[in-house]
């Protein structure tokens, strides 16, 4: 609520920086999305084409193929990261010897640089000399090279495994924090009433985790929609475009093909989706604020 004109002065520097580094690039991207920008012309000579770039994107078969791959990538990455994170959080919630060490170890994937992790996994998966393939051969499960990322059928799923490995720790931390807020008295009461472990988890713990779970899932979805490093480094979008997702496709169009206008239109579509997700994220974060303010 407005209290003093000086309040605006205090936030002005931050607002100014945000205008320059966030608002202007967003504005410029939206503006660029209405122009044709051939590689042979400088951006100063771009030509206005209205909604042509949006039409080009939305009527392209490649766009819909990439969209489907983006959905698979985002949904599976989010789902398995959340489930694995939840399992790890529940396991680490109970006291046992070595819990702190295990918690530290499980955090490693999250703190490792995505670039380094991508290269390490690329070698683990390597179709000729990969450790995973060698292990599978050694235990007799396969014969000869195992083709994870050089195969257009399996490559996207192989990359999803890497992504889940990289980000499940994030879900784990969030949910561990959420578990701290579950009242012990409720769990004890349920136990006294004869509830099984599963019933206590499903009817007591999970409802208490609803808020943090919503925020975690939304953050994971946003992160996965924008996940660039793993697919770009490990496969460059291939083989035959099988690991191309929106963000890597936008990068290819804008920076590798210098098709800035179409890339910008594509980016605006992604931005709109992010805005919708952002709305739900803020709503999830501020749920109950009005009630508390009223009280």
């Amino acid at each position: 609520m407005y209290t003093s004109r000086f309040d605006y002065l205090y936030v002005a520097p931050a607002l100014l920086v945000m205008l320059i580094v966030i608002a202007y690039p967003v504005y410029y991207t939206i503006e660029l999305s209405f122009y044709k920008t051939p590689a042979s012309l400088s951006l100063a000579d771009k030509t206005f084409t209205g909604l042509d770039n949006y039409s080009t994107v939305l009527t392209s078969a490649i766009f819909w193929k990439v969209t489907w791959q983006t959905i698979i990538w985002t949904v599976l990455s989010t789902l398995f990261s959340f489930l694995l994170g939840l399992g790890a959080a529940l396991a680490l919630h109970r006291a046992f010897i070595g819990r702190a060490l295990l918690r530290g170890l499980l955090l490693i994937p999250w703190v490792v640089s995505a670039v380094a992790a991508s290269y390490v996994w690329k070698w683990l998966y390597h179709s000729d000399f990969g450790a995973i393939g060698a292990l599978l051969n050694a235990v007799g499960l396969t014969k000869g090279p195992v083709n994870f990322i050089d195969n257009s059928t399996t490559s996207l799923y192989a990359l999803i495994v890497v992504n889940v490995w990289k980000e499940f720790s994030f879900a784990m931390i969030m949910l561990m924090a959420g578990l701290q807020t579950v009242p012990e008295s409720l769990l004890r009461a349920a136990q006294v009433d004869g509830a099984s472990a599963w019933q206590r988890f499903w009817h007591v713990t999970m409802p208490q985790l609803q808020g943090v779970s919503t925020v975690t899932v939304l953050l994971l979805v946003v992160q996965n929609f924008n996940s660039f490093i793993i697919p770009f480094i490990m496969t460059g979008g291939g083989p035959v475009g099988s690991t191309q997702i929106w963000i890597t496709h936008i990068y290819e169009l804008a920076f590798l093909r210098q098709n800035w206008g179409v890339g910008a239109a594509y980016a605006v579509l992604l931005f709109l989706i992010m805005m919708v997700l952002g709305y739900f994220y803020v709503r999830a974060l501020t749920r109950g604020d009005d009630k508390r303010a009223g009280a």
Partner: peptide, 16 residues
């Protein structure tokens, strides 16, 4: 040739 040719750059050929 390497099965990994589809994801290989020259750097990945140096090690083998």
């Amino acid at each position: 040739v390497p099965v990994s040719a589809l994801t290989n750059t020259q750097a990945e050929n140096q090690a083998p």
